[in-house]
């Protein structure tokens, strides 16, 4: 229940709204990714589109679950309502959110590491399921795993890409994923500080807005 309890009261609902913005951005990138796949026909572009589609679905599930929880919380202002009537919905909502988020990261790692072996891909998805089983008992583990995936695999790949091709686009992508990785760290810290929860959402939004700027800068040409 980390993400509910650690949110400051004034931020209830705002986090859902911020997540909806990221949903729109992720879906726009996914849509353009599908367009590239249809045009060029390489599977890696389908994977690219699917990773952002998965992020979009994850954010919708996270946002809707959070919003409904706040709605119930504010209406009844009692934890027993959550415990007795809402716990199953809460767990299913957030576990689905975690699943799609981790699946998106795994697809990005498959692209970053240029993995083509189906057995390795299935192994990675077994890892996602294992993380979900752990996350079912302790939601914090989701943020720990997300942070590890970002810091060890995804961000270093985009940094290397920026080093090898120094231009505004590679720089923006590296910056965007660094901001998203930072948001994962802040979500983790939000267990101890509600300010970290607010900063996590802001950092995440900055990351996705940077990706949107990148997309717009290409499409405007």
């Amino acid at each position: 229940m980390a993400s509910f309890i650690t949110s400051p009261a004034w931020f209830y609902g705002i986090d859902s709204a911020l997540q909806i913005v990221t949903v729109v951005i992720a879906l726009l990138i996914a849509f353009y990714g599908f367009h590239i796949y249809r045009f060029i026909g390489q599977k890696k572009y389908l994977f690219f589109a699917l990773s952002f589609l998965s992020i979009g679905i994850s954010m919708v599930l996270g946002s809707v679950t959070s919003f409904l929880l706040y709605f119930v919380w504010m209406k009844h202002n009692a934890l027993y309502v959550l415990v007795h009537d809402f716990m199953l919905f809460y767990e299913v909502g957030f576990l689905s959110h975690f699943f799609f988020h981790l699946a998106a990261y795994m697809i990005l790692i498959i692209l970053c590491l240029k993995i083509e072996d189906l057995r390795v891909m299935s192994l990675l998805f077994l890892f996602v399921l294992l993380t979900l089983i752990i996350a079912e008992r302790n939601f914090v583990s989701f943020y720990v795993v997300s942070l590890i995936l970002m810091v060890l695999y995804i961000v270093p790949y985009f940094y290397k890409n920026y080093q090898e091709n120094r231009n505004s686009k590679t720089k923006r992508v590296f910056f965007a994923f660094s901001a998203i990785a930072l948001s994962q760290l802040l979500f983790l810290l939000s267990v101890w500080s509600d300010r970290a929860y607010v900063l996590a959402h802001i950092s995440q939004l900055i990351g996705y807005i940077t990706l949107l700027v990148n997309l717009i800068s290409v499409l405007r040409k």
Binding site: H35, I36, F39, Y45, N167, T170, V173
Partner: peptide, 16 residues
């Protein structure tokens, strides 16, 4: 040509 160039430019930003 313009469309293809945009797509390649976008995807190169990610290094894919």
């Amino acid at each position: 040509l313009n469309e293809y160039h945009k797509m390649v430019e976008f995807i190169k930003g990610f290094g894919f």
